[in-house]
């Protein structure tokens, strides 16, 4: 994936809802339109975090399946 990301965050092994909280904190330091790359676990994490981000007005741009995780690109809303 060729995206110009402003920040990277590896949340492999971080359970709900801490993964969302950490994502939120990371986005807090960014500006509107900036991209954040997050690694999220399969299962609960990939279902819950993107939905919560949507509720907060951020936008998922791309999701790529890795081994047991996903690489997710989020645009600050």
């Amino acid at each position: 994936m060729k995206y110009k990301v402003a920040k990277r965050l590896d949340l492999h092994g971080v359970p709900c809802p801490m993964n969302f909280v950490k994502t939120k904190v990371a986005l807090f330091g960014l500006e509107c339109g900036d991209l954040l790359e997050v690694i999220l676990d399969e299962g609960e994490a990939i279902i819950n975090v993107p939905r919560s981000l949507k509720d907060e007005g951020h936008k998922i741009i791309k999701v790529e399946k890795l081994e047991e995780t996903f690489r997710v690109i989020v645009e600050h809303g």
């Binding site: 990939i46 993107p50 741009i61 999701v63």
Partner: peptide, 12 residues
Amino acid sequence: CIDCNLCVNICP
């Protein structure tokens, strides 16, 4: 649709 592929990956 922005072809992000999220739906494919989260459908249980």
